[in-house]
Design a protein around this nucleic acid. Structure first.
Lengths: 207, 207, 207, 207
DNA sequence: AATGAATGAGGCTTCATTCAT
DNA sequence: CATGAATGAAGCCTCATTCAT
C-alpha cells in the first residue's frame, strides 16, 4: 500500500472537484477562450488527458463549473429570502452583504464576467446563468421590497422599479475590482455601505 | 486625375478608419480572443494582409480602436462638465443621458466589456481606458456633486461617496443589454429614469 | 464450489473466445484502423484492460481472430477436396456453394476485406491468410479440375488457367454485398448460379 | 524575379492537382484512416497547413480525389460503349482491356479498395462511386451484350445474368495485385486472356 | 482474474503573421 | 498600395497502453 496508491484512490472521488477548482482558477485568470486544458491540467497537477476521464470537452468543464457554483448560490439566495425579521434597512443591508460576498469574493462574478465577454458562444449557459442566479437574486430583492411595502415602510411606488437597479452597484464593484484594483483600488466595504445607504435613503424617502 | 484616381486617394486616407470600424464590429460581435483578422478584413472588404500595412498586430488594432473611440468620449465628457446651469436633478439627469447614450448605444461599453474579460492580457490598455474614460467620467460626476454642494442643494456628506456608485447602474445596463436582451429585455429608458430618481432622491434627501 | 465459482471458471476459459467474437464484430463493423479496444471491450461486456490479460496488442487480437477463423476454414476446404463423386458440374457447384457460404455469410470475407485495405501494415498476416486460406482454396479447385481432366470431362487445356479466375466472382460478391447492398442489392443465389454456369459452360465446351 | 518567385506563381494553379496526386499516393499506401495530412504534405513538398488553403478537411481531399478520378473514368467508359464494330469476342476483349488498364494500373481500384474497408464512414461517396463508376461500367457491358444479341451472336439468355459477373475477375485481379503480388505474383496479361476466354466461350456456347 | 485510473504519442485544425509579387 | 500564397505555433481531442490495486 504505497503512498502513491493511497493518493490514487483518494483522488478518484476528488478528481472532478479538483479539476473544477483548477478550471475555475484558469478561467478566472484567462477567460474562457484563452484558457487551455494544459493550464487546467497543470493547476490540477494531472495530465492533460486525465481531464477527459471526467469531462468530455472544454465547454463541458465550463458548464460543470458554472453549475457547480450555482448550487451553492441557490442556497445563499434562499438565505436572503428567508431572512430573519427586522426593518427594511437591516434586511436590505444583510442581503447586500451576502451578494457582495458571493460576487466579489466568490465565484459568481467570474462567470458573469466571462459570459459578458463570450456568452454569445454559449447561449444555453447564458440562459442557465440568468435563470438560476440572476433571476433568483432579483426575486429575493423583490421579496424584500414587498415585505417593506407590506409593513408600510416603503411606498407602493417602489414596486415599479427594475429590481436589477438595486443590485447593480454590486455587480459593478465585482467587475471593477478584477479590472482596476491595481490601478485604482476600491474600498469595498465603504462602497458597499454607500450602496446600501443610497438605496435605502432613496426608497425610504418616498412618500 | 480619373475617378478611380480620386477613389484611390480617398481610400488611402480612409483605410485606417475603415479598418477600425470593421474591427469594432468584429470585436463587438466576438470579443477580442474570438475575433480574427479574417473577420475584420471581410467586414472591411479588403484582404487580410492589407491590414498589416496599417497595423502591426491584432493588439495594435485593438489599441487603435480604443484610442480612436476615446477621443470622442473626451469631448462628450467635457460637455457634461461644462453643462448649462440648472438644478442638480436636471444636471445629473442630463449627464446620465449622455453616459447612457455612449455606453448603451455607443462604443464605450464594447471596450469595457472586452477589457473586463480579457484585460489581463493588455494591462496598458486597461490603464489607458481607466485614465482616459472612466476617471474623466468620475471627475465630471464629482464636479456635478461639488456644484450641488456649492449651491447648497447637496449635503457635504455626498462628497465622501465613491463617485462610481452613481454611475454604476449605467454600466450594469450596458452589459446587461448585450448579454440578456433576448432572454429578458431591459426597458432602458425606464431603467435610466429609475436610476436618476434613485440617486437624486437619495442625495437630495441628505440633511 | 458455488455457482459463481463455476461461472467464473467457465468464464476464465471462455474469455479468449468471447474477446475474439467481440473483436470480430468490431472489425466487421469498423475495419481494423477504426476499431477500438473500447469497442471490443464493450461488446464483450468486460473492461478495456481485461483484454490485455489475454492479448498483448490490438494487432495480436486481430491475428488471433484470423487464425481462429482459419482453423475452421481448413476443415471446410478439406470437405471440398474430399467431396463425394459426381460429374464436374455437380462437384464444382458444391464447391462454390461452400465458398459462398464461407465468404458471404461467414467470416472469411471480413478478413479479406480488411487485409485488402490495411494489409500493408501486417504483411505477415497477409502471408498467413494467403497460405492458409486462399492457396488451400485454390488447391481444392485445382484438384477438381484435375479430376475432371482425369475423367475426360475437361480438356487438358483447363489446367493452364489461373485457378483464382474460377473463384473470383465469389470474392467480388462478398465485397459487393458489404459495400453496396443498400444501394443496389445483389441476388446472391442468382449470382451464384450464373457464376457456376459461366465457369462450367466455358470449361466443358473446350475440346 | 527569383526562382522561388516563379515557383510560387506556377504552383498556384497547380497546387490542387499536386495535392490530389500526393493524396492519392498516400491513400494508396496507407488507406484512408492511416493516411495523415503530414504524409500528404510531405509527398507534395508543402507544409501541412498549406493544404487547408485548398481543401477544408481530410475527407474533402478524399472526395476531391475520388471525383477527380471519376471524371476521366467516365470518358473511358464512353469509349467502351462507342467502340468500333467487330465480333463480340473482339469487342468484349477491348472493353476488358480498358477496364484492366483503369483498375489495375489506374486509380479506380485504389478507391474501390478503400471504400470496401472504410466506406461505412462515407456513405455518400459510396453512392457516388457506385453511380458514377460501377453502374456506368455495368451499362457499357450490358450494351455490348445487347449488341451481341442483336447480331445474333449471343443467346437472349445472356441478358438475364448479372452484368457484374462478367467484370468481377478484373476487380479481383486489381485487389489481388495490391495485396499478394510480392507473395504470389499474378500474370496479369495471362489472367486477362483467361478471363476473356472464359466469358466469351461461355456466352457464345449458349444456344 | 479483473479493473479503474492515468498518461504519452500522435492526429486534425485554426490563425496570426511573413514572403514575394 | 494591395494581395495571394505559405507557414509555424498552438490548441483540442482520441486511443492504445501501463500502473497499482
Amino acid at each position: 500500500m504505497t503512498k502513491t496508491g493511497k493518493t490514487r484512490r483518494r483522488r478518484k472521488e476528488a478528481r472532478p472537484d479538483e479539476i473544477l477548482r483548477a478550471a475555475l482558477e484558469e478561467f478566472d485568470d484567462k477567460g474562457f477562450a484563452h484558457s487551455t486544458l494544459a493550464g487546467i491540467a497543470t493547476r490540477a497537477g494531472i495530465s492533460r488527458t486525465t481531464i477527459y476521464l471526467y469531462y468530455d470537452t472544454k465547454e463541458a468543464i465550463f458548464e460543470a463549473a458554472i453549475r457547480n457554483s450555482v448550487e451553492r448560490a441557490i442556497d445563499d439566495v434562499a438565505g436572503i429570502a428567508n431572512a430573519a425579521k427586522g426593518d427594511f434597512r437591516t434586511l436590505f443591508s444583510n442581503a447586500i452583504d451576502v451578494i457582495y460576498d458571493r460576487l466579489v469574493k466568490g465565484n459568481a462574478a467570474i462567470f458573469f464576467r466571462i459570459l459578458v465577454a463570450e456568452g454569445h458562444l454559449m447561449p444555453d449557459l447564458v440562459g442557465f446563468y440568468h435563470r438560476e442566479i440572476l433571476s433568483k437574486g432579483e426575486m429575493a430583492i423583490r421579496a424584500l421590497i414587498e415585505r417593506g411595502i407590506a409593513t408600510g415602510e416603503l411606498s407602493e411606488d417602489c414596486r415599479s422599479d427594475d429590481m436589477h437597479l438595486f443590485v447593480s452597484p454590486a455587480i459593478f464593484a465585482a467587475l471593477w475590482v478584477r479590472l482596476f484594483n491595481r490601478i485604482d483600488p476600491l474600498d469595498i466595504d465603504a462602497f458597499k455601505a454607500s450602496h446600501v445607504r443610497l438605496v435605502t435613503d432613496a426608497l425610504l424617502a418616498r412618500p
